[in-house]
């Protein structure tokens, strides 16, 4: 079964994977066992590039408690291929530093947490 835990384990090793449906070819990100397009449970891990372009973004100054020490930061939706999108955080000081369509790369940072979840942190770096 494809699981969120294994998705993050793979990400921790530096690789971004979705789940590809063997019946209809749809790629789920985050990966899941049942294909949201055709309901098939025949799937396989599918390696995705760790680059994409910003589809939308926000610049957060009032952060949830667990993220206050990092604020302000941008959170961007990144289009990887066609309908496959992922999300990451970017340390910037002004929303004017980024725009829709900018090319970005996912940068994975390990998380030393000893309690669940020990999923890595996901940042974005602008590609020039």
């Amino acid at each position: 079964m494809v699981t969120i835990e294994e998705f993050y384990e793979r990400l921790k090793e530096g690789e971004l994977y979705g789940a590809k449906c063997k019946r209809c070819g749809n790629i789920s990100l985050p990966p899941r066992e049942i294909c949201p397009k055709c309901f098939s449970t025949e799937n396989e891990w599918y390696k995705l590039p760790k680059v994409g372009e910003i589809e939308s973004y926000t610049f957060i100054t009032v952060a949830p408690k667990n993220f206050e020490s990092e604020a302000p930061y941008a959170v961007c939706i990144v289009k990887i291929i066609d309908s496959v999108k992922f999300i990451g955080r970017m340390k910037i000081d002004d929303p004017k530093e980024i725009k829709i369509g900018d090319k970005v790369e996912f940068v994975i940072e390990k998380n030393g947490s000893e309690t669940w979840p020990s999923w890595p942190k996901i940042y974005l770096k602008k590609l020039s």
């Binding site: 939308s56 926000t58 957060i60 949830p64 959170v75 939706i77």
Partner: peptide, 18 residues
């Protein structure tokens, strides 16, 4: 979404930007 540091204002801001 929570893992990325999004707030609800942040989620609706993503809609607004687009």
């Amino acid at each position: 979404e929570q893992w990325s540091g999004l707030t609800f204002a942040g989620i609706f801001a993503l809609m607004a930007t687009w």
